[in-house]
Design a binder for these strands. Structure first.
Lengths: 385, 385
DNA sequence: AAATTTTGTCCTCGCTTCGAACATAAAAGG
DNA sequence: CCTTTTATGTTCGAAGCGAGGACAAAATTT
């Protein structure tokens, strides 16, 4: 569908809008409230909700009265309604969660994997264990770019061109896979610190930096679904060569790898993350050398953010991963470095730089969002009603 | 309106789609053809077109028969229909043009100005001279960022925070103002080399570099309408300080200023553009030193493009201004430098780097597009019908 | 001249939301 | 305790939309 043309399209379109409103609302919506929100009549809302209730998508329960007037009903997820599963595949572990309409998230299981695509078998089995008739879609967050939605690259796992169609397909629910940094940003845009913000950036800082440009609550995906490798722009003048094949990447100066390298260790495996955490902790305890390493990181981070703000003009920028720590310890330093990299006429209104609110659940929440995007859509609704 | 809710909205929505299709089609559309294009019935198309004809928006004329079947009609701009004016305000001159539905552009007048905002008085007078009842909107391209659509910054004219509301308002038709580089990109996306491309970048290379990210045929504008200053990211490791207040800008290595600086001249005024052209001409004639200057420019250009492609994943990149010459003379060099800056896994499918097809008319054509965007919209239509 | 192809037109049908009127259920006020 | 006020639910008719089918019209092809 995707394009409203006929009167029948209109009904589905409005029902999708209604369902989307219920899903993304902070708390439960009332029937009268959603009518006002969507700008439709109470009678129309009643008809739409009625059909959605029959289709086991919404459930109406009496609302506690708050003030004057006849009491209305709360619109909740139907107890038999569709749910999405979301998975986050990290370096050597994974988590599977279940998300209801409205966003309530329940963790189902966590496991370790062997750093090979066999993790998808683990995921399939775990999904089967918990799946019932309500499972409608599965979103998976992975720690690398997913070209064209199916070819996965994770350099530090040695996955070069893993074809997802060979591992995800038969026996799976409708499944969508995307990059974790992008999904973490989507989570902020939909349910976190970037709600209602038209233009924003999010960066997940781990070993290196990945991110996404967020426009009107959706991620910019690029022509081949591999947008977001902001960490691989030469924004800070590094002279080193990066694993990605380019020289001077921003990621060489920001992130766990950069932190570790400051102490002469070769950046690399999981041990590095432990070491990075320790450096942050020591900096917090007043260790001068660790403090300098964190300073350098924060300054390089700020400079990069300023450069990107010149090009993309975000209203706000959120960070996750190590970025949260950097904001906590060096917020002013980041802002100062950012301001120095901002064109002068922008400095009066710099982008706000915030910690994301989704925390470690960001990728999972984002994966749930792209799964629900498949559901809260006219065409899916048409088949369901 | 902006959101289809009722059947009446639907009508306007479809009429806007129809009008938009006529406007952006390559050649004249037939009535039967537009029905197929929009996926509506012939009867519906007849009704829509009928109303649009009554509203003097479309004009139907018999079409020359091309094959079998009953002849149909061509959908043309109505002779009394709305037209847009577009203006391009360059450094010391301006051009005013008139554009019809469908995109036919007629230059009306060109003038010089005194490098002060008094140019807007010139424009108002010129607009008045040519305006008739058909003038519906005016789009203006200016050579600097327009914060929030009204505060104009042009550093090399010394315009710091020129408030457009003080110069554009009473006595003007509905007017929209935006940055020329962005509008040149919009022109490519709507009617040029970037048609039908979902994710693209355009850069206008003059003294420095401005550009825009193009998504689904529209420009990314940013939170304060000042996105697009890609030239002020430190992508090439320059150690110089830029007029914008930041150090290391990409624009210090690419563009006329960079070309001129290579020969020891201080970059600056209009004379610089003349000199830049001469350097390009000499490089073309085989002058070694000029050739090296152009080489450096092309390499720095390519490196920046690669870095940006890592972050934004465009399918194609178009260039205007000096960029056209650089492509003509150094296409391979640009592509090689770009590839080196691309992450390895991207090199198999690099973005296409093309010269824009709008030429010097880019800003004017883009200004016409944003003017027509005000017209080809349900709300405007509602008032007109 | 007949068959074929394509488009225009007319009409009915089912669908949508809207608006107005009325019913209902709570709180607030005297 | 009863009335008024406020907000919501419900019902019904009205107006508008596009779809689809049947048929007419106008061109080319055979």
């Amino acid at each position: 569908m995707q394009q409203v043309k006929t009167s029948a399209d209109l009904r589905l379109h409005n029902q999708a809008r209604l369902l989307r409103a219920v899903h993304s609302a902070d708390g439960p919506l009332t029937r009268a409230g959603v009518a006002r929100l969507l700008g439709i009549g109470r009678n129309t809302a009643a008809a739409l909700v009625g059909e959605l209730e029959s289709a086991r998508l919404l459930h109406e329960v009496a609302a506690a009265t708050t003030g004057r007037g006849r009491p209305t009903t709360l619109l909740l997820a139907h107890p038999d309604g569709p749910v999405a599963f979301a998975a986050d595949v990290r370096e050597d572990s994974w988590t599977l969660a279940r998300i209801e309409l409205g966003g309530r998230l329940t963790e189902l299981e966590t496991g370790v994997h062997d750093r090979t695509p066999a993790v998808f078998d683990d995921l399939r089995r775990a999904t089967r264990r918990y799946a019932d008739g309500r499972l409608a879609a599965l979103g998976i967050a992975v720690a690398g770019p997913v070209r064209d939605g199916r070819r996965l690259h994770i350099s530090h796992l040695g996955w070069d061109e893993v074809d997802l169609d060979e591992h995800v397909g038969d026996g799976w629910p409708p499944t969508v896979v995307d990059n974790d940094a992008r999904l973490a940003g989507l989570a902020e845009a939909r349910r976190g610190a970037l709600r209602e913000i038209g233009t924003a950036l999010h960066f997940h800082i781990d070993f290196d930096i990945g991110g996404t440009l967020l426009l009107g609550g959706d991620s910019q995906r690029g022509a081949h679904n591999i947008a977001g490798e902001f960490g691989h722009m030469p924004l800070t003048g590094s002279r080193l060569r990066c694993l990605c094949g380019v020289a001077g990447c921003w990621s060489l100066d920001v992130g766990t790898n950069a932190l570790v390298r400051h102490f002469g260790f070769e950046p690399g495996r999981a041990a590095g993350r432990e070491l990075g955490r320790e450096i942050v902790a020591r900096a917090e305890d007043g260790d001068a050398e660790a403090g300098r390493a964190v300073d350098d990181n924060a300054i390089a981070l700020g400079r990069g953010l300023g450069a990107l703000a010149n090009a993309l003009d975000p209203e706000a920028i959120t960070l996750s991963g190590l970025g949260v720590e950097l904001i906590r310890l060096r917020h002013d330093l980041i802002e100062r470095a950012c301001a120095e990299a901002l064109m002068e006429f922008r400095r009066a209104r710099p982008p706000r730089i915030l910690a994301g609110t989704a925390g470690d659940l960001g990728p999972l929440r984002g994966a749930a969002e792209i799964a629900f995007d498949k559901i809260l859509e006219p065409e899916w609704l048409r088949l369901r009603l």
